[in-house]
Design a protein around this nucleic acid. Structure first.
Length: 250
DNA sequence: AAAGTGGTCAACCGCTGCGAG
DNA sequence: GCTCGCAGCGGTTGACCACTT
């Protein structure tokens, strides 16, 4: 049997995703969910195959993804789980909330494998080269949590995205921008999360977002709530800042 | 300062499993 | 029971970045 290619090769874009494409994908999934990945890019107006969209969402754009260095505890868990399960990255990822199979696979191949190959030694707490606090999507989730408490449904994500973009590079800017961002989120309401993460589909994410998760699981969340410390989100905002005009058109 | 080297990680490719018809 | 189409998974690649010489 000759299988059809996963997507029509001609005319489809490959390679790194642009901020514009990210916004289109987020915007579409926010409004429509993702019932059919193959049809999604066409409906969203993206020149990508469905697999690429799914991968981008699952590994990078999902708001419950936890970014930054793996903690020694997480690394120990991966080593133990790998010893039990082998290369079942998706199963291992399901045991580590906020981590993706791709990320776990990468960290295994880059250093955990070597550590296990030699004599296993627990690693000290990771410290970034700049001494900066590790970034985490917990910043983002807590902001959303704050907003959802105040929420009333209404605005489209594009308006919120605009607000985020307005806040781009806020370090050094006045606090009114952050205030505006939070206002925008609060106006958007809870529908974003209920639409994107239907009950049951995202096990753990609702607890994660509602603050019901195991406190030890996300132990550094509280200490990292300061967005000024987040190099990741600063980068996202900086990238997005270039797209103000684009988002206004959405 | 420039070139070389190694590490990291996002993304692609191809295969498998599963459900619908 | 078989075929088909889809989502998901794991292996691999290659661009980018940081570090070393």
């Amino acid at each position: 049997m000759v299988r059809a290619p996963c997507c029509e090769k001609t005319g489809l874009k490959k390679g790194p995703w642009t901020a514009e494409e990210d916004l289109i994908l987020i915007n579409f999934i926010t409004q429509n969910g993702h019932p059919n990945w193959r049809a999604l890019p066409k409906r969203a107006g993206l020149l990508r195959c469905g697999k690429s969209c799914r991968l981008r969402w699952m590994n990078y754009l999902r708001p419950d993804i936890r970014r930054g260095n793996f903690t020694p505890q997480e690394e120990d868990s991966i080593i133990q789980l790998h010893a039990q399960l082998g290369n079942k990255w998706s199963v291992i990822a399901s045991r580590l909330p906020g981590r993706t199979d791709n990320e776990i696979k990468n960290v295994w191949h880059t250093h955990l494998k070597k550590r296990v190959a030699g004599k296993y030694q627990p690693q000290p707490q990771p410290v970034t080269k700049t001494g900066e606090v590790e970034y985490s999507s917990n910043h983002f989730c807590r902001k959303v949590e704050m907003c959802s408490e105040l929420s009333s449904p209404g605005e489209s994500l594009s308006e919120v995205s605009s607000a985020i973009i307005s806040d781009a590079g806020h370090g050094g800017r006045d606090d009114a921008l952050m205030s505006d961002l939070l206002d925008k989120w609060s106006e958007m309401g809870e529908s974003f999360w209920s639409d994107v993460f239907p009950a049951g589909e995202w096990s753990g994410s609702s607890d994660f977002l509602s603050g019901n998760s195991d406190p030890d699981q996300f132990r550094f969340a509280e200490s990292e709530l300061n967005m000024e410390d987040s190099s990741f989100w600063r980068d996202v905002f900086n990238r997005a800042e270039e797209l103000t005009e684009f988002v206004d058109l959405l």
